[in-house]
Amino acid sequence: MQIFVKTLTGKTITLEVEPSDTIENVKAKIQDKEGIPPDQQRLIFAGKQLEDGRTLSDYNIQKESTLHLVLR
Rank of each mutant, 00 (worst) to 15 (best):
R42C: 03
T22G: 06
K6W: 10
I23R: 01
D52E: 03
K63L: 09
E64N: 04
L67K: 01
P19M: 05
K29G: 08
E51Q: 03
E16F: 07
D32E: 14
P37T: 15
L67G: 02
P37E: 15
E34L: 09
N25E: 12
T14P: 08
E24T: 09
D39K: 11
R72S: 11
D52L: 07
P19H: 07
I23T: 10
V70G: 09
G10E: 12
Q41C: 02
L56D: 00
F45T: 09
S57G: 09
Q31V: 15
Q41T: 10
I3Y: 01
G35N: 05
E51R: 02
Q2T: 08
I23L: 12
Y59L: 05
F4Y: 04
L69K: 00
T7S: 13
K27T: 11
N60S: 14
L15I: 05
K29N: 09
N25V: 11
P19E: 05
G35W: 09
Q31W: 07
R72T: 14
T9C: 03
L69T: 03
I30N: 01
G53D: 07
Q49T: 11
E24Q: 05
T22P: 10
K48G: 13
T12N: 10
T12I: 12
N25F: 09
P19N: 10
L43C: 01
K11Y: 05
T66Y: 08
G53K: 09
L56I: 12
I36Y: 05
D32S: 06
E18F: 01
T14R: 09
Q40P: 03
T55V: 14
M1T: 11
T12V: 11
L8Q: 10
R72N: 15
Q41W: 15
P37Y: 13
T14D: 10
K48P: 02
K6F: 14
S57E: 15
T9Y: 04
E16P: 15
D39H: 07
Q62E: 08
L71I: 05
I30L: 12
L69V: 12
E16C: 02
T9N: 09
Q2I: 06
I61E: 01
D21P: 00
I23E: 01
K11H: 13
S65C: 02
E51I: 14
E16T: 03
V26N: 00
G35C: 03
R72G: 14
T66D: 07
F45P: 00
L8R: 04
K63Y: 12
S57M: 06
E16M: 13
L67V: 14
G10R: 02
T14S: 07
R72W: 12
P37W: 13
V70R: 05
I36V: 07
T14W: 11
E16G: 08
L56W: 02
Q41L: 11
M1R: 04
N25C: 02
K6D: 08
A46R: 03
E64K: 03
F4T: 12
V26C: 02
V17A: 13
T22Y: 07
D58N: 08
K27H: 06
L50C: 02
E24N: 09
I44M: 05
G35V: 04
T55R: 09
L8G: 02
T22D: 12
L43K: 00
I36K: 05
V5C: 02
P37D: 12
T66M: 09
K11I: 12
L71K: 10
D58V: 06
T12F: 10
G10A: 15
G35Y: 08
K29A: 09
Q41Y: 12
T55H: 06
G53R: 09
Q62L: 11
G47N: 09
D39N: 05
F4W: 11
D52N: 05
G35H: 12
M1E: 05
N60G: 06
R42T: 14
E34D: 08
Y59T: 03
L56V: 09
V5F: 05
Q41D: 02
L69Q: 14
T12C: 02
G47E: 14
A28I: 12
E24L: 08
T14Q: 04
T66R: 04
A28W: 11
H68Y: 15
A46G: 11
D39I: 05
L50W: 01
E18A: 11
S65V: 14
P38I: 12
S20F: 08
V17M: 09
T55N: 05
K33E: 09
P37Q: 15
E64V: 06
K48V: 14
I3H: 00
S65Y: 10
K11W: 11
Q2P: 05
